[in-house]
Design a protein around this nucleic acid. Structure first.
Ligand SMILES: Nc1ncnc2c1ncn2[C@@H]1O[C@H](COP(=O)(O)OP(=O)(O)OP(=O)(O)O)[C@@H](O)[C@H]1O
Length: 702
DNA sequence: GACAGAAACGTTTTT
DNA sequence: CGTTTCTGTC
């Protein structure tokens, strides 16, 4: 047998060997879809069927992309033959836009605005047009704009508004787009929208990508939206070598425009399609599989698939009802303590929840129980104020014109300068036909501003080998570091900026560095090597696996979420969400509900989730002093808790690979760790960008 | 324009 | 209840 086919079952081997034409892999959770796809790509290259440059592979997260690239490299044993184009749709879009300047309305060095930056532009557009920010919250309007922009590549003009909201959009949307253009920037949605427009409207661009990518694959295809589907179809040449992989049970992003029909109708839309169904689950115990299946089988609009396993563990799925939300968090801590005492590691445990707000109580209890933990999601490292300010300075040094970046700089480094003053300067710049930076360099007589501009010019003229050198020079010379140090929590902020230097050390171009800081999510920085409990939303858990899973807050109103009550299809999506969470568990699944939950200022009685009544008979149900609600205040010393620190595996004395550490790799040279998975490190290497490498293959220093 | 103290407000999910 | 946004003063 071919070595790449080893470790695959018969059906998975079919996925690998069906090299040409459209291929659909539809299969339930943990059936080895991603593994089959990875081996398929390695096989195509190893057999010489495809050149590495002809491979395009799209994944759902940057982390999944890095992991897939690493696995392919390991299978091939050759970094040189590892395909470069393994990325998310958004990262791919950004790359296309940089490759095709001139085919769209921005420069090669355009910047990417994250949600909070684009919300700032919306706020400005609303304010300048005298809309009440109370009535039209920038956040909500940004949401509406985003919805419109991921619906279609062409923005409707709302010339005939039907609703008040459309009236606002008719006014605001063109202004928002103009502001984006003035900033030489794209928002997240544009990273899909503009590449699609190019593929649709510019024949030479379409021809280029069609001849370049001869073998295309997409993981998690059930969560693609209409634009993503069209981008893929326009990239395919007449031979249509495309492999899509997914599970309609796990379609959980319809609120973001994803449409499960793309996978369900793939067969009809692609005549001659080879369809492969994987049915063996390699992840979970029979009890977990049965429970998950009982939950999902209640959905009407699914293509039902049953999974089987050869695992024999009889460990029961547990459902526990607790008196209060805080009691729930405490109980989970105690359970984790039990597991650790019986030999499990903290990193084997994950706590999943429907809303990020639920992480707060877990965090509080982990702290009082002295259990190391990490919370994934919500706030990104790159969203911290000091980091955004530092990046704004770097970004402005490139463009010398971007107003939102200048505003940030001004708020940190200049006193008595707010929107009014900047308006004035911007107007002055416009009148003299100069960019803001050049205008200020010539006109200002403020010494603080002169100092900043001079520092920027000096930094630009010096030849910095690494982005970190440039960034450090900028932040030091402008007085940014001094200003940070003067803040009450200055020490911590300086530490964060130091970590930013570490990451920047791996880049040689500022544009590439800024692009990654915009595109990398919190999840992409997840470390699974340090011994900590991981907490995240059910959405964020898609594609991951842990031996021990706790799903907390399984109550009506949370899952299914209150906002989904009025729509049967939303309820079905909530059910799929629970299915996704349950199927992350390898060995033991524990579900908790709380009888009372602190909401809106008072303890509110909660009903258990309707989904729990579909669980099979063999789940272990228990509850504990449900009426013992009064004890819901926070204390710093948990009662009857034996500290587990003796059981925690202290990390070895040699340097522990962790985020921010420097690595040195035989192939890629010097780099910095941004995350770890098992024995693998996700690193950024000088001149090579984000890569996954084995911890044993490189040396680590702090 | 900056800051501190007061009021409102709130609970989806994220590339 | 805890966090974010607003308001009034300097
Ligand atoms: N043929 C196989 N033999 C042994 N283990 C396998 C096999 N195929 C996959 N696995 C293991 O099963 C687990 C799930 O695989 P994978 O992540 O590829 O599944 P998936 O179908 O993509 O899952 P999900 O849809 O839940 O994300 C992994 O731990 C993987 O290593």
């Amino acid at each position: 047998m071919h070595p790449i086919l080893e470790g695959l079952n018969e059906e998975q081997q079919k996925v690998v060997l069906a090299t040409h034409g459209p291929v659909l892999v539809l299969a339930g959770a943990g059936s080895g879809k991603t593994r089959a796809l990875t081996h398929r790509i390695a096989y195509l290259i190893e057999q010489g069927i495809a050149h590495p440059q002809q491979i395009l592979a799209v994944t759902f997260t940057n982390k999944a992309a890095a992991e897939m690239r690493h696995r392919i490299e390991k299978l091939l044993g050759s970094p040189a033959n590892t395909p470069r184009s393994v990325s998310t749709f958004h990262a791919m879009g950004a790359k296309m836009l940089r490759e095709q300047p001139g085919a769209h309305g921005r420069s090669r060095g355009f910047s990417i605005l994250d949600m909070s930056d684009s919300e700032k532009l919306v706020r400005k557009a609303l304010k300048d047009n005298n809309y009440s920010l109370k009535e039209w919250s920038p956040q909500a309007v940004r949401g509406m704009i985003s919805k419109i922009k991921h619906d279609s590549p062409d923005i409707p003009d709302f010339s005939n508004p039907q609703k008040p909201s459309e009236e606002v959009l008719a006014k605001i949307l063109p202004i928002y787009e103009r502001l984006l253009s003035e900033h030489d920037a794209y928002d997240f949605d544009d990273l899909l929208r503009i590449p699609l427009k190019m593929l649709r409207e510019v024949p030479s661009v379409r021809a280029y990508y069609q001849s370049r990518f001869k073998f295309v694959s997409v993981d998690e295809y059930q969560d693609t939206n209409a634009m993503q589907e069209e981008i893929i179809s326009l990239m395919l040449g007449p031979e249509k070598n495309v492999c899509v992989v997914g599970d309609d049970y796990q379609s959980i992003y319809s609120w973001r425009g994803a449409n499960v029909d793309h996978i369900l109708q793939f067969e009809q839309r692609n005549p001659g399609c080879t369809t492969i169904i994987l049915t063996q689950n390699y992840r979970s115990t029979p009890n977990i599989l049965e429970a998950a299946n009982k939950v999902i089988e209640q959905n009407i609009e699914q293509k039902h698939k049953k999974l089987w396993t050869t695992r024999t563990s009889t460990q029961a799925v547990q459902v526990r009802t607790l008196p209060s939300d805080r009691g729930e968090a405490t109980w989970v801590c105690n359970q984790i303590g039990e597991h650790v005492r019986s030999g499990r590691r903290l990193k084997d445990c994950a706590v999943l929840y429907r809303t990020n707000a639920q992480s707060r109580l877990m965090e509080e209890q982990f702290l009082t129980h002295r259990i190391p933990y990490t919370i994934v999601g919500g706030f990104r490292f790159y969203d911290r104020k000091e980091i955004k300010d530092a990046l704004a300075l770097l970004s402005f040094s490139l463009s010398l014109s971007s107003r939102i970046h200048f505003e940030r700089i001004a708020s940190v480094l200049l006193t008595r300068v707010g929107p009014k003053t900047i308006d004035k300067w911007e107007q002055g710049a416009r009148n003299s036909g100069l960019t803001l930076g050049i205008y200020l360099a010539q006109e200002t007589d403020r010494s603080d501003l002169k100092k900043i501009i001079a520092a920027i010019y000096r930094a630009k003229q010096t030849n910095h080998e690494r982005v970190s050198d440039l960034l450090r020079a900028l932040l030091t010379d402008t007085g940014f570091m001094t200003a940070l140090a003067a803040l009450p929590d200055g020490k911590e902020r300086i530490e964060n900026v130091e970590e930013l230097f570490n990451v920047a050390a791996a880049y040689t171009t500022t544009e590439a560095f800024l692009e990654d800081t915009a595109l990398l999510s919190d999840l992409d920085r997840l470390e699974t090597e340090t011994d900590r409990v991981t907490c995240m939303s059910l959405h964020a858990s898609k594609g991951l696996e842990f031996p021990l899973i706790f799903i907390i807050g399984c109550e009506e109103g949370l899952i299914p979420h209150g906002n989904s009550f009025n729509s049967p299809s939303s309820i079905e999506e909530e059910r799929r969400l629970l299915y996704v969470g349950m199927t992350r568990a390898q060995d033991k699944l524990t579900i908790t509900t709380s009888a009372y939950r602190f909401m809106g200022g008072e303890m509110t009685p909660q009903a258990p989730s309707r989904f729990l009544s579909d669980l099979p008979e063999n789940v272990e149900r228990s509850q504990e002093n449900i009426f013992n609600v009064q004890q819901n205040s926070h204390t710093n010393s948990p009662e009857s808790w034996d500290d587990i620190s003796d059981f925690l595996h202290d990390e070895p004395t040699l340097v522990q690979p962790m985020s921010g550490s420097y690595v040195s790799h035989p192939q890629f040279g010097k780099g910095v760790i941004i995350g770890t998975i098992g024995e693998m490190l996700t690193c950024v290497f000088e001149g090579h960008g984000v890569k996954s490498v084995e911890a044993t293959s490189c040396s680590v220093s702090s």
